[in-house]
Amino acid sequence: MDSAPGTVNPAERNDDAMRFLLTRRSRPPKTLTGPAPDRAALQEILTVAARVPDHGKLEPWRFVVLERPALERLAGAAAEYARAQAIPDDMAAKGVGQFAQSPLCVAVIAVPRPTDKVPAIEQTLSVGAACTQLVNAALAAGWGAGWLSGWVSHDPGFAAPAFGLAPGEWIAGLVHIGTQTVAPPERPRPDLNQIVTWVDA
């Protein structure tokens, strides 16, 4: 029996998924600790992260998984770079801390593809979708996860050698994943009355 117009077949509705999406909450990376997902568990999460809208099937993103030894190395490199560039102490500490405190981090790299068929902005939006999907997949799998950026992402002098960026590539996000120590309180959410316009004619 077909559903009435404007309704969905109850058999096709995924209440668990809707409940998760309505209540999902990123975990502040500074509240995460070990253990982090092992490679097998992370492989599943990354598979979900790569399952996003991608006009032209260009795959304008790639993932760099930073495990603890790499994070410790990057913490030292960030501290050295910050001193050499006279980055203010508080700002430097935030960048260094991302690596020093993280149990595991996935750098989402934007990989713009040269094509006349897919505008650059659509590729960028796909990269953002991959970041969001990565966070949500980690949360759905029972881990804590949060998406950060900061100067260690945006300063090309540091980011290019640190993450092995090719020309034209850039860091879309650093997604930290681990075991949550505290559940963050709910925060105010957008008022749909202020951001939704209904157009019926």
Rank of each mutant, 00 (worst) to 15 (best):
R187Y: 08
Q43K: 13
M1W: 12
A4P: 07
D38N: 10
L174A: 08
I87H: 05
V182P: 05
P60Q: 08
A160P: 02
P167W: 01
P35F: 02
H176T: 15
D155H: 10
A201C: 11
D200N: 14
Q85M: 12
L71H: 00
I121W: 15
S126M: 06
P112E: 07
A172R: 04
P119H: 05
G146S: 13
P35Q: 06
A50K: 01
P60G: 09
S26V: 06
P103N: 09
S102H: 03
V118T: 14
W198Q: 11
D16P: 05
G178Y: 00
V175M: 05
A130G: 08
L42V: 01
S3T: 13
V118P: 06
A130T: 11
L174N: 04
S153V: 01
A172F: 07
T179W: 01
F99Q: 03
P184R: 12
Q85T: 13
Q43L: 15
A11N: 15
F99V: 04
S149P: 02
C105E: 06
P5M: 04
R39F: 02
Q101C: 08
V96I: 14
T181F: 10
A162C: 11
I87M: 08
A183D: 15
V106I: 13
A130N: 03
F63D: 04
E44Q: 14
A77F: 03
E44W: 07
Q85W: 10
T179P: 03
L32Y: 06
L125H: 04
T47M: 09
A86S: 15
S102E: 01
P156H: 12
A79S: 11
N9Q: 12
A70K: 00
L165G: 03
W151A: 02
V108H: 04
H55N: 10
D90K: 11
I171N: 01
A4K: 09
V106W: 02
A78I: 03
Q98N: 12
E44C: 08
D15Y: 14
S26W: 06
Q98S: 09
D54L: 04
G142H: 08
I109P: 10
A92H: 07
A49K: 04
P119F: 09
E44V: 15
D89E: 15
P119V: 10
V52L: 07
N14L: 12
L139A: 11
P35D: 04
G97M: 02
E122A: 06
K30T: 14
P190I: 09
I109H: 07
Q133P: 00
V111P: 03
A4T: 10
W143G: 02
P35S: 02
T197N: 11
N136T: 14
T115S: 13
G6T: 09
D90P: 01
G150M: 06
E59L: 06
A129L: 09
P184M: 09
L148N: 07
A137E: 05
D16Y: 11
G56P: 01
R27E: 11
F20W: 12
A201I: 09
I121L: 14
R189D: 12
L32D: 06
A141E: 11
V196P: 12
V8M: 14
D116S: 14
R27S: 13
A82C: 10
P188N: 09
E186Y: 09
P161H: 05
Q180G: 13
G146E: 05
L46R: 00
W143E: 02
P161G: 02
A162H: 03
T115W: 10
T132C: 09
A84F: 08
P29W: 10
R25V: 09
C131Q: 05
L134T: 06
L46G: 01
R73H: 14
